[in-house]
Design a protein around this nucleic acid. Structure first.
Lengths: 130, 130
DNA sequence: CTGTATCCCCAGAGATACTG
DNA sequence: CAGTATCTCTGGGGATACAG
């Protein structure tokens, strides 16, 4: 990273903020990325605490951003499979270092996550548990 | 990435969500990362649209997360310099692929940012400008 | 210069119930 | 099963003014 320019263009970053700053977005991307195809409820279960409304919302968002692909089968019961687009895959890859960083950091700071995970909600809201 | 386990532990990711999902956080990290030291107002100018209240808030957050270091000099006028901690540097590195992804993506989708940047606010809120 | 103190707004997110 | 439809609430984030 050359510190040559005094003016660092942040525009690209600004663009992705709308994506990654969405609370569950990166999680969803990662989850989908770990399978070729995954269904709505499967994602829900992974996310544990998320409500269908929220997930649906994010899925829509990611779809609009052309990061995920939605394939619905006209069956009964209905089946819908989500997968990453090429762009989404790239994003998923790009996020890996971040995850690894988080992993190390997590391990360093403390070991929660040896039990059942999800000790605390993902929320960045409610910083004071009580 | 081995798809061996059906149970992907997302805990580490959950941990960082509180950091990266904070609207300006990644931006700030990147900005600071591009210099060894940077002052409050310099960051403000880079961020262009941010209010001191918000920036201050985020800076506090990042400091608590031990990602940035704050050094204040008892001078008049006061001077405060922010820099990345070791942890922060790692994060900054970890974020690079993401930035590069965003860059490519941005270039592909359209070319804004050839003028003065900041055509549109970074906000993910207010999707309807009018 | 580097922030805090206020005030306000609204989008994100949760919960629940319900539909195709 | 895969979502929508509502409703509510919280707190992030903007703006402005002011303080040390």
């Amino acid at each position: 990273m050359e510190p040559h320019s005094d003016h660092l263009c942040l525009c690209p970053l600004e663009g992705i903020i709308n994506i990654i700053a969405r609370k569950w977005a990166v999680l969803v991307i990662s989850i989908i990325g770990h399978r070729e195809k995954i269904r709505f409820n499967e994602i829900m279960e992974r996310l544990d605490g998320i409500s269908p409304r929220t997930l649906s919302d994010i899925l829509k968002d990611l779809r609009q951003a052309n990061l995920i692909h939605r394939e619905s089968f006209s069956e009964i019961p209905p089946r819908v499979e989500y997968s990453l687009t090429e762009d989404g895959k790239k994003l998923c890859e790009a996020v890996q270092p971040l995850i690894r960083w988080a992993l190390e950091r997590d391990a360093t700071h403390s070991e929660r996550c040896r039990g059942n995970c999800h000790d605390e909600p993902v929320s960045r809201k409610r910083k004071l548990p009580e």
